[in-house]
Each structure stands twice: as structure tokens, then as C-alpha cells.
Design a protein around this nucleic acid. Structure first.
Lengths: 254, 254
DNA sequence: GGGGTTATGATTGTCGGACAATCAGACGCG
DNA sequence: CGCGTCTGATTGTCCGACAATCATAACCCC
């Protein structure tokens, strides 16, 4: 943006494997290749691009890693829809590397959750609500297991935001979701009181959604998150500390 | 979450190149390798892992693509901090592939911008404000060039959110930012009136930040986004249409 | 004829070796 | 000290090869 206009463009020799990747990527992004369409075999790509198989393979690896292409049963290549999870896991790793603090996570989650819940209040269907309720029931079953509670909590909020029918927000939330999960475990772990309050909050959130009561939904979202913070503080953690202790391989996912 | 406990774990033969990538990734994520640290040459990695160079290369390509490792001048490998841009570009590509609509983008942007601006009101420094002001000055210089205005607008909002000092939010916003940019160009393009209103809104936002006036900041953020939507509608686009028309290679970036 | 089994070919993952181009660093020269 | 040159190291790309696996077709048995 604020750069001086330079006389010559920078010379950047682009390696062949990268050109292979970009060529396929362009086809996909332009819509000429649609998700599910088969891409040729490696041998075919070798012929098409006129490069060696090693080069093709290096190029394909890039797309495969990014989720743009995907190997279904057997190992044939086909165009895939990169799911948010994949991007999210990478994004949350980046957040860990950047040493974000719990405070940042909390602030962002507060804003995103409030936005999500408002949309959910507007748009949730009966099916959405039924799903949320069965999640709550399942949570009650495992109330004594902090890890399981945290897992169901994570699922609950994902379902909730899906009910809001906004995929941009969904994608925006997911990296933080993955960071929240391990900390919820810590926050709930202390006492059974924690799990109880969590379930109550979930129940009130569903009730608010059912009544289309926006203010009630906002209120309980805030309470829920404040509880989360308190549980976290009670566990002796510092809000302004980077999140790198808790985040084990559990969040990595296959 | 809702799966039955199975007796045996699924058998997933992990290719060697992937193990190479994961091994290096673990070292980085665990902190034993810090950003900037050199990773060995390909030959060294070949010796360490006991696999062929082609295999090592395929593995490295993955990390390199994800930004976890990075080749500085010459082409030596070193650990890199994946910057949000890189993730964001991939995320916004995913959004396009999923055919999100302008309405989704607008809703999410509204929520995220309001959160950003509130933090910016709290935390912006004199330097931040000076930067924003010089951006506005620069925008005025190019008022007649919609593309340039859109570019400065994008920069403005990035600076604004950076002033909020919350990297989680920053990462959450960036994918949508990249989608907004091309549409701003469309929205402003119609009349010079559009650019004028945009600059006015920016000015009021900076003023609000300077006065630490949260309500004023929220108000002008909303106005700014409503203007954006109106400009967009005036250009004859449909809010509930997927965003795939405008999103050219301009957003891809090197 | 249908269901299971076996051969066959295609495809991928991995390997070893090779070479040109390029870069870092040493060397020599003015 | 600045400059060109040389040398070794490193990367990008290529070739050819082989075992393991998968898809498919041919086969056989009931």
C-alpha cells in the first residue's frame, strides 16, 4: 500500500512444482473443476504438464495439504472442498505460535459468540433445537468427566453457530474454538459445580433460542463466558499468559 | 463426539513424507525449534530421517506451503511464523468455494468490526492514530481511483484492528477482509460521492478513537458498513448471491 | 446364475542416482 | 577496500526402478 512505485517488478523464479500446484488451483478456483471431479493420475499430469513425476508429486502435495485436492478411497485424486476444520487447525496452531493470551481469546470469543447467538435466535429451526437438546442430555450423562463435558460443550457451540447459518462467522470462530476446548476442560475440571453451571447455561441458551429472545440469549452467552473465565482463573491461570501450556496434540486432529 | 466407542482404532498407514512433515512440525509447535532457527539442509534431513531425498522434499513442501518453514535468501530452510495473510488467503478461498453470500459476509463483518473498534477505542496509541490519519490523507489523494480507494480502505481497517491489540480477532477478521476488498471497489466505484462518504466515515472513526468514545465508534462503524451495503446494492448486486464473480486473482497474493 | 477367489494391470509410495543452475564463501587482484 | 573469479554446497529437476496396494476382470465353485 504505502510503497514507492518501483521501476522493475521483482524477479521471482517460480519453481515448476509450484506452477503445477497453481495451475491446478486455478482450475479449481475458477470453477472449471468442481468438488468431486477426478483429477488425472500422476502419470497423466506428468504428460499434461511435461514435467517429471517427482515434480508433479511435490506440486500435488501442496494442494493435498491445503485440502483443495483429496484422495478418496484407494488413492485417486479428486477435487475436494477444504473444510473449515482443516484450516482452523492450522490457524489455531498459528495463534499458539504467536503466543496469544487468554484475554485475547476471551475477548474475541465474546464478540463472536454474541454475534453467533443472535443469528441463531433468528434462524434456528426445530431440528437445530432438537439437536441442541440432545447434546445437553448427553452432557448430563457425563457430568463427572471434565474432558467429556468439554467435548460436548465444544460440540454444543458448534451446533449453535451452525444454526445461525453464517459460514463466514463459522469460519471466523473455528480457530478460537479449537483453543477453547482444552481450556474448558481446565475450567470445568475443578468442581462439579462448574459442569452444572455449564449445563444450566446451555439450557437457558436453548430456551432463549426457542423463544427467539435475543436479549436473553445475549445475557446467557455473557454469563457462560464469564463462568468460563472464572473457572479458568480459579484454576490458577493468568489471563495475560500465552496459551501454549494446555494446547497439546489433542487439538491437532488427524 | 457422538460416536460409539470402537474396539480397534482405525488403521491408517501414514506415508513417510507425512511423517517427516509431522516430525518437524512437532518440533516447531513444541517450541524446541523457534521461529528463525535454521532447519538442516535436505541432505541432513535425509540422513536424520533415513529416507530418500524425494520423500524429504515432499514432506518439506507441506510445511513450506503452510508457512511453518520458510526459505530465506538463498534457499536455506528455517522456521517461520506463519502470518495470518497466508492462512487468510486460503480461508477466503475456502469461503468462495463454499459459495458464501454477501449477506453472510456483511453480518460477520458487522460483528467483527464492532468488536474491533471497541478494542481500538480502548487501546489505540498515538502512533496508531497517526497512522490512521496518514492513511486517510493518502486516501484523499486517490479519491478518483476506486481500486486505490478500496486498497486504502482495506489498509485502514487492518490498522484499526491492529490497534485493538487482539490477534485472535485479527485472524478471525482477515479472511473476510480479503473478500471485502474487491467488493468495496465495486461499491465505491459508482460515484465520487461513495469515496467521499467513505473518507468521512474513516475520519469520524479516528475521531471516536481519539476521544475514546465507544458509542460514536460503534455508530460510525455501522454507518460505514451500511454505506458499503448500499453501494453494493446500487451496483445492482444481490445480497443473497454467492461471491464468486468479483473474486479474481487480485486477492490471491504471492 | 451368483458369490467368492484369484490373476492382472494400474497406480502410488519410495528409492537410488544424476545433472544444471544457483548461492555462499574463499581466494586472489588491483 | 572493492571487485571479479573459483569452488563447494545446495536446490530444482530429471530418469529409471521396484514393492505394495487397489481396481478390475477373469475364474471357479456351488
Amino acid at each position: 500500500m504505502s510503497e514507492v512505485a518501483e521501476k522493475f517488478a521483482r524477479i521471482t523464479p517460480v519453481p515448476a512444482y509450484q506452477m503445477v500446484a497453481e495451475a491446478i488451483e486455478r482450475e479449481i478456483l475458477s470453477g472449471r473443476l468442481r468438488p468431486g471431479d477426478p483429477i488425472g493420475t500422476e502419470a497423466e499430469l506428468v504428460k499434461q504438464f511435461g514435467v517429471n513425476r517427482s515434480t508433479v508429486r511435490e506440486g500435488i502435495r501442496l494442494l493435498e495439504h491445503g485440502g483443495l485436492v483429496h484422495r478418496d478411497s484407494s488413492r485417486r485424486l479428486s477435487v475436494g472442498l477444504p473444510h473449515y476444520d482443516r484450516l482452523a487447525s492450522r490457524a489455531s496452531r498459528a495463534l499458539v505460535l504467536h503466543q496469544v493470551t487468554f484475554r485475547e481469546l476471551l475477548e474475541a470469543t465474546m464478540a463472536l459468540s454474541l454475534a453467533s447467538i443472535e443469528l441463531a435466535v433468528m434462524r434456528a429451526t426445530e431440528d437445530d433445537i432438537a439437536g441442541l437438546e440432545s447434546n445437553i442430555a448427553a452432557t448430563e450423562q457425563v457430568m463427572h468427566n471434565p474432558a467429556a463435558v468439554a467435548a460436548y460443550d465444544s460440540e454444543f457451540h458448534i451446533m449453535l453457530e451452525r444454526a445461525g447459518r453464517n459460514r463466514v462467522l463459522e469460519l471466523a470462530r473455528e480457530p478460537s474454538n479449537m483453543l477453547i476446548y482444552p481450556t474448558t476442560q481446565v475450567a470445568v475440571g475443578g468442581s462439579e459445580q462448574g459442569a452444572r453451571r455449564l449445563i444450566e447455561a446451555h439450557r437457558m441458551l436453548v430456551e432463549a433460542v426457542r423463544r427467539r429472545d435475543r436479549e436473553m440469549a445475549r445475557l446467557w452467552t455473557q454469563r457462560h463466558l464469564i463462568d468460563w473465565r472464572k473457572g479458568f482463573e480459579k484454576a490458577g491461570m493468568d489471563l495475560d499468559q500465552p496459551i501454549d501450556t494446555v494446547t497439546g496434540d489433542s487439538a491437532a486432529g488427524g
